[in-house]
Design a protein around this nucleic acid. Structure first.
Lengths: 152, 152
DNA sequence: CCTTGACTTCAAGTTAACTTCAAGTTGTAA
DNA sequence: TTACAACTTGAAGTTAACTTGAAGTCAAGG
């Protein structure tokens, strides 16, 4: 089995054929065509698809992945260097994500203890250090006069 | 300032007025109306909105949040008990998320070391324990004859 | 040769979480 | 009382990552 059909690739990778075609339109993968215009894939494509799924699990968008995979050879298995460069970058990203979540958890733990009866003193209600990469506007939740608390 | 207009709330919470109206259609928040049909919010709404944003940062969908906030009083500040129940649930969720990411990182670290020249032995390429909550289909990436590796 | 499953393209549909727009109404400061 | 910002609703638009459907073509076994 020198070449894989799109069905073969779908079975082997666990990714739907529709998704594979979609990836191709996005420039994430490439294919050769038969005389009858059907896609045929080199076997190295399996690794590439695996990388895409792994990257997605990391939270990368397809656009970011397209970018990251740009630097890898399309036609053959990436070299050790290729892979190390990529995996080190991804590891840093993971470290960051973990750190953010741990910080959030610590804040939340404090909150459980404090009963969280004041917006002013509660870290959860007062981001600023939090992961604000998705935010649209300012997130200042302070400034309330405190008489609205203490109610339990 | 007994009642907040939607503009006030937007400024204080950092959430756009359009989003606040949207939250209302989703049943996440409530409002009274003036004679002229404009929304007026109790000040306790601030905490509720803050909770929504905090929950989103945790990765909860608005639907899940609507569910979680169901159990909290709409009209007044939640009691210490209310809050502790919620925050403990969320903390568990966070713990899980962190554990998943740490596992992924450890796998990735191994990969950096190994140069990752074999799909068969690499944990990243062989999920199964990985967070498969987003997946659509099976994810078996094994079963390649090994002659496609060792290339660097 | 013929059947049938696998393949092709392109357009439109899906979900989440909003935003934007249009057209009209309200609230308030001067 | 008048100007004008802020408010109202409902519909449509946005982005990501795909899926689904329609209508037609290819490949391989019998």
């Amino acid at each position: 089995m020198e070449w894989l059909t799109i069905g073969d690739l779908a079975n082997r990778s666990g990714v739907a054929t529709s998704a594979l075609r979609f990836y191709e339109t996005k420039g994430l993968i490439e294919s050769e065509r038969t005389d009858g215009n059907q896609r045929r894939y080199r076997r190295a494509i399996l690794r590439r698809v695996a990388l895409i799924r792994a990257g997605q699990e990391l939270g990368l968008s397809l656009a970011e992945l397209a970018d990251a995979l740009e630097s890898l050879p399309h036609d053959k298995t990436p070299s050790k260097k290729d892979w190390q460069r990529l995996s080190r970058t991804w590891r840093k990203r993971l470290d960051g994500q973990i750190a953010d979540l741990v910080a959030l958890r610590d804040d939340l733990s404090d909150c459980i203890g404090c009963g969280c009866l004041s917006l002013k003193s509660c870290a959860i209600f007062n981001p600023g250090d939090a992961a604000s990469d998705l935010g649209t506007g300012p997130r200042y939740l302070l400034g309330d006069s405190s008489d609205e608390f203490v109610k339990s």
